[in-house]
Simulated scan of single mutants.
Amino acid sequence: MPDMRPETSVIIPTWNRRELVARAIDSVLDQTREVEEIIVVDDGSTDGTGEVLAQRYGERITVLVQANAGVSAARNRGLAMARGRYLALLDSDDVWLPEKIARQVAFLESNPGIGLVLCDVVRVGVDGATIDVFERRVQIPEDGPALRWVLRDPALAPLSALMRREVHEDVGGFDESLRTAEDLDFHLRVAARWGIGVVPEPLARALRGHDGLSALASTEDDYIAVMERAAEAAKGAVPEDARRQALATAYVKNAESSVWRQRYGEAWALARKAWALGPEAPLRRRLLRLPVMAGKRAVRSMLPGGG
């Protein structure tokens, strides 16, 4: 009996973005390879999102409405409802370029050992001007087992991913207990169990510099908790030095962020953790620059007993 499931399902969480979400949906409908199931999860919008979508798209999309519970809960509800052999995520302020699904489905069909495939992402400002390009091949230099690289740089950009249904069934959804860094946590859990591939082409555009789901930066607490948990789980799965350097990188990155936020005590604590791991030369140089970043007055507050 033939498989009657959709080939690809996309889940689009949204909250009070009735204009932007329509742009996201249109980019899915414009794919050169049809996305047969479009699920929009309205996470408690109060701007008439549901009515606008019903009028504009009718039965071409499925809209699930829930009380506001956050992006992870919205993604998880959509993933639980999706029927496709391949599953994709798209935040409501982002868009796909027309060849995105065609290129990624073809990749997965040609690489049965890969569970999730990523693409490059063009990041744009509110004026439409390009900010930069997130090049995935820099992050993941070769297709296949990728935990050692994802540990070092766990950024996911959910709009760039297409995964086999079995990946979600295996690793589960997004951790709803995390306020931020839930996408990093998901990427790390996938990398621990599945091969990851890259189509090194810019096939998606992410909007930056406005309020909303993707404008939230990961807090230091969530980021560090996710990285420490992943590093502990990776013992024996990656070379020990690679595991330690990945954890040191996380500490250094967040120490720098803490300095910029004038949270000097936290910066100092993270810097000490990073130093204890024996960081490689580039990380040591970044640690030694922290006092310069902080300034003399801040340095005194970072010293034991300083004020």
Rank of each mutant, 00 (worst) to 15 (best):
M1E: 13
M1Q: 12
M4Q: 12
M4G: 06
R5D: 08
P6Y: 14
E7A: 10
I11V: 15
I11S: 00
I11K: 00
I11W: 00
W15K: 02
E19C: 04
S27F: 10
V28Q: 02
D30T: 06
E37A: 02
V40L: 02
D42W: 07
D42E: 07
G44Y: 07
S45Q: 05
L53T: 03
R56A: 12
Y57C: 14
I61E: 00
I61Q: 00
L64F: 14
V65C: 06
A67S: 11
N68A: 13
N68C: 11
G70N: 03
V71Q: 00
V71H: 00
N76E: 01
N76Y: 03
R77N: 05
A80S: 13
G84V: 07
G84Y: 08
R85L: 12
R85I: 06
Y86R: 15
L87Y: 08
L90G: 01
S92N: 04
D94Y: 11
D94W: 11
W96Q: 01
P98R: 15
A102Q: 12
R103F: 06
R103S: 09
A106T: 08
A106Y: 09
A106M: 07
E109I: 04
S110W: 03
L116Q: 03
V126A: 14
T130M: 10
D132C: 13
F134D: 08
E135Y: 13
R136D: 01
Q139E: 14
Q139D: 12
D143P: 07
G144L: 13
G144K: 14
A146W: 10
L147H: 01
L147E: 00
V150S: 01
R152F: 15
P158Q: 02
P158N: 05
S160G: 08
L162T: 01
L162C: 04
E166D: 15
H168T: 08
D170W: 09
V171I: 14
G172C: 09
G173D: 03
S177F: 06
L178E: 00
V190W: 01
G195V: 07
G197M: 09
V199W: 12
P202W: 03
L207D: 02
L207H: 07
R208S: 10
R208A: 12
H210T: 14
H210I: 13
D211A: 13
G212I: 03
G212Y: 02
L213N: 04
E220T: 15
E220W: 10
D221H: 11
E228Q: 10
A231F: 11
E232T: 12
A234N: 04
A234S: 14
G236Q: 10
A237C: 07
A237F: 07
V238L: 01
D241V: 12
A248R: 01
T249F: 11
N254S: 08
A255I: 11
A255T: 08
E256V: 15
R261H: 10
A269F: 12
L270G: 03
L270F: 13
G278H: 01
L283E: 00
R285K: 14
R285A: 06
L288H: 09
R289L: 13
L290H: 02
V292M: 12
M293W: 11
A294R: 00
K296V: 15
A298F: 09
R300L: 10
S301D: 04
M302W: 06
L303I: 12
P304M: 08
